[in-house]
Design a protein around this nucleic acid. Structure first.
Lengths: 141, 141
DNA sequence: GAAAGTCACTAACCATTCGGAAGTACCCAC
DNA sequence: GTGGGTACTTCCGAATGGTTAGTGACTTTC
C-alpha cells in the first residue's frame, strides 16, 4: 500500500500502535495488572472466585471482580453461576482466552526467571545515579 | 518440597502470584500500558525518543520518558545520550529486553488478530446484559 | 536584534482510575 | 446473638496518568 494513502486512511489493518484501534484496548485489557495473573492462573483450569482470590496474592475482591468482568466481556473468560447458597461462580478460560493466557503465562515465567538480572540492573542503575554518571542532555541551571 | 514447609517459608522460588515477589514488579513493569508498546517497537531496532513518540500513538512525552526510565532501570533498555545539540538520545533493547520484547510483540500481534472475535463478544455481552440474562448470584433487595 | 524552531526531558496542577473498607443477601455453626 | 462462608457492590480517599508550560543550548528566519 502507498504509505501516504495509509496515513490518510488510518490503515485498514488492526495496529496496536494506533491509539484508537480496538486491538489497543484488547491489549490493554489483557496486559492490565491483575488480568495477566488471573489469566495465567486460569490456565490451570476452572477456578471459583475465592480460589482465584487466594491464588493471586494481593488482589482485592473488588479488583478481582472488576478484572473478571472485563475478561468476560472481552470473551476471554466464561462465567458460570450456580443457583446455590452460598453463592458459587466458576470461571473458565474460553478458547480465545486460552490463547492469551498461554502468552501471558510465558511472560510470567520469564519474569520469574530473570529476577537476579533485573535486580542487578536496578542496583547498578542506582549506583550510577548516586555517582552522577548519567549523561545529562538538558542540564538544569 | 513438602507443601506445608513451602507455605511456612513462603517458598524460595520467584512467583508472580506472591504479592511481594520481585518478579511481580518486573512483570508489572513489562506489561504496563506503554512499556508493552515501546518494547514491541524497539524490537525493530534502535529508536530516538522522538521516533518512539511518533511510533506509539497516543503516548505523551511525559509517559514515554517515565516508561523508558523504568525500562532502563530494569536493564531492559540501553539509553545512549549523544553530546550534541539539539539533544539526541538513542534507545536500544538489551539482550534481556529483547526476550521480553519478543513476548509482548507476539501478544500485540495476537490482539490485532483477534479484534473481530472480541468485538463480537462485547456486543453479545452488551446484548445479554440489556436482556437481563446474566445470572444474579447476590440479589439486591 | 527578536522570534521560532530543534530535541529530550521536567515541573505543576488537574482528571481519572485504582484501592481500601464497608456493605449486601442468604445460609450454617456455636 | 456473633461469626463464618460466598461473590460481588458502593463509597470515598489515594495514586497514577494527562495536559500544559517550561528548561537549555544551539540554529534558522524575519
Amino acid at each position: 500500500m502507498n504509505p501516504r494513502v495509509k496515513e490518510l486512511t488510518g490503515g485498514l489493518q488492526p495496529n496496536v500502535n494506533s491509539a484508537g484501534c480496538a486491538s489497543r484496548g484488547i491489549l490493554e485489557h489483557v496486559t492490565s495488572r491483575w488480568a495477566v495473573l488471573v489469566l495465567a492462573v486460569l490456565l490451570d483450569g476452572t477456578h471459583r472466585f475465592s480460589e482465584l482470590r487466594r491464588a493471586v496474592g494481593g488482589v482485592s475482591e473488588k479488583m478481582l471482580a472488576q478484572t473478571l468482568q472485563t475478561l468476560e466481556q472481552d470473551g476471554l473468560v466464561h462465567r458460570e453461576a450456580h443457583a446455590v447458597i452460598p453463592p458459587r461462580v466458576d470461571y473458565t478460560l474460553t478458547p480465545l482466552g486460552e490463547e492469551a493466557a498461554r502468552q501471558v503465562w510465558a511472560l510470567a515465567r520469564w519474569a520469574e526467571s530473570r529476577v537476579p538480572e533485573v535486580l542487578a540492573a536496578r542496583a547498578a542503575h542506582a549506583e550510577a545515579k548516586a555517582a552522577g554518571v548519567r549523561a545529562e542532555v538538558t542540564t538544569r541551571a
